[in-house]
Write a protein that binds this DNA or RNA. Structure first.
Lengths: 218, 218
DNA sequence: TCTTTTAAAATATCATATATTATTGCTAAT
DNA sequence: ATTAGCAATAATATATGATATTTTAAAAGA
């Protein structure tokens, strides 16, 4: 999902975050400094810096003098995260669709094209590149809101999206043609500069994804 | 605003965050580890943990291999932060006003009472306890949204609120009787369980605060 | 003036020491 | 016997100072 940063700290951060989001480290797992030191090839200090960052973002839970844990998951948390994603992303898409210029349009077209190519591969049953597919999904959603003109909003959204992604990865299944059509509809509404429609379609899209995930979680 | 945590790390975090929010450390200041080590009486590693946390939250800006800076301020950033606060807090108050029980009402009444007492003191020109006043302001706004039933939303809001507070502290002046009446109106609407009205009044209240701050910043 | 070299400062990383928490095994009481 | 309380020990987290890299600044050379 991202290359190995230049410093030990940043690459450790990337690796740990990836392993939490993609379920390599199960929810609730105790993150003991000693063992982590070996598996991530970093010193205690570097690991603690990383864990503190991840704790601020909510992927890790820190208990004073008792150490770090992979944050637990729950249906309630998933629903809260989804509601926040709807709140932030729908607000952002409305701003973005109104403000976006030609540059924005170009990036959006490119992002949708790439996502659609991958969706076609997924439709054939080729599930060898789920991570790539999810990355293109992320890039498409990011492209939609990119022109919202608020870095603070984009930053917040990125974290919430990653938390949402973690739940998706727990049950990762392809939602199929329906989701493809939803993406297309949002894409068309955005290019047509219909901010309200784009917002409504996006909300429905995210809501459907939640239902799908909740059903898969049982 | 917060007590001196039990570990060196947590108390350093509290102190540094406080000093950034309350302007002791000016925006843009380079945070060199050596000097910090002395003024905050903590080791390099402990300081780096703290700075990484604050960087995640946006109070500090980290540049790979170039160190840490107090995040800069700008009118654009203030406007972005305010818009996010409106988005999050108004959403939360609507949920909260609908869902709140007697416990919530009680806390809200208490919070408003305390805030109002302090407002009366401020009105007399007694500006000796600005920090206390701002804390009661925070507690009132928190009490309003407390029952929104989303810890994720409350966590996000707390960070955004602190960022907003930092801008207030740069120009700290008492907005006077107008703000007092706005608080009272929001309070009444909340107790009357008029979620829509409470949301609208809150949005206007925050917007007015922004105008006041922008005017003071010049 | 521009590039290259050198010296100083600052950051990133580590290994180790200290403090805290968790575990184990024992004793005594019900 | 079983369990509650308590001590001793092990495991773990926290904190520090020292070291290795990297960046920045200054000086020298073209």
């Amino acid at each position: 999902m991202s290359k190995t940063g230049v410093t030990v700290g940043s690459s450790t951060y990337e690796k740990l975050k990836h392993d939490i989001i993609f379920g390599v480290l199960a929810p609730g797992t105790k993150l003991k400094l000693g063992p982590l030191r070996q598996s991530y090839e970093a010193s205690v200090s570097t690991l603690r810096e990383t864990l503190n960052r991840l704790a601020s973002e909510g992927f890790v839970t820190a208990e004073e003098q008792r150490g770090f844990f992979v944050s637990p998951v729950s249906n309630k948390d998933l629903i809260e995260i989804t509601n926040l994603r709807v709140l932030l992303e729908c607000h952002a898409i409305r701003k973005s669709v109104v403000a976006g210029g030609t540059e924005w349009e170009g990036n959006l077209v490119a992002a949708h094209y790439k996502l659609h190519q991958m969706e076609k591969r997924m439709a054939t049953g080729d599930e060898s590149e789920k991570e790539t597919w999810k990355r293109f999904d992320w890039e498409f959603h990011l492209a939609l809101i990119q022109a919202c003109d608020s870095q603070n909003l984009l930053d917040l959204h990125a974290i919430i999206y990653d938390k949402y992604l973690r739940y998706q990865m727990l049950v990762l299944t392809y939602r199929g043609q329906v989701a493809v059509e939803e993406h297309k509809a949002i894409f068309d509404a955005a290019l047509a500069r219909d901010a309200e429609l784009a917002g409504r379609l996006l909300e429905q899209h995210i809501q459907n994804g939640l239902d799908h995930t909740l059903a898969a979680l049982g």
